[in-house]
């Protein structure tokens, strides 16, 4: 079982995304303890698209229950290639006065989920991010895929 929904590219749509994930988790029996981390990853990915992408078409989110967890797919049409799994490193050991908040979102994503994969279709100009979160212990570091995708 999986559920899909489309979301306009506006920051205020975040509330709709969170309502969708909450309802989909409940309907599919995904453990609620995983919801905050999934919402975090979706927020970081979605706001990144809203801030930096030139496309206008709605973004699709699919949620599918898997054993002990969930697989989430975010599809961005009219996309430029941007591999979110290759985010620049962040020095988290800096003292407060030298810290900057920028870049933390993408840095944290692979640390909060079991896996994250990025794919891009040149022909369709479509980006797709698939991540999995389960009740198993998180495994920092992301699997990466740069193969040709179909949207």
């Amino acid at each position: 079982m999986s559920e899909n929904a489309l979301f306009a590219r506006r920051i205020d749509v975040l509330a709709e995304i969170f309502a969708f994930t909450t309802a989909a988790f409940a309907r599919q029996g995904v453990p609620a303890a995983l919801l905050a981390d999934v919402d975090f990853v979706l927020e970081e990915l979605f706001t990144n698209i809203v801030k930096y992408s030139r496309g206008k078409a709605p973004v699709a989110i699919e949620i599918a229950a898997i054993p002990q967890g969930v697989q989430v797919t975010l599809t961005e049409p009219e996309a430029d290639r941007f591999d979110v799994t290759q985010a620049p490193p962040v020095d988290i050991a800096l003292p407060a006065v030298q810290r900057q908040p920028g870049g933390l979102g993408l840095y944290l994503i692979p640390r909060l989920v079991d896996s994250v994969q990025y794919g891009y279709s040149e022909g369709e100009r479509c980006g797709r991010i698939v991540f999995r979160k389960t009740s198993a212990a998180p495994s920092p570091g992301a699997a990466k895929r740069n193969g040709e995708e179909r949207c």
Partner: peptide, 20 residues
């Protein structure tokens, strides 16, 4: 406080640096 994203981290960091 049920949920915090990187935007919230930014708020905390900016506030902490100002207070420091």
């Amino acid at each position: 406080l049920q949920y915090l994203s990187s935007a919230g981290l930014g708020v905390f960091l900016k506030t902490h640096k100002r207070l420091l």
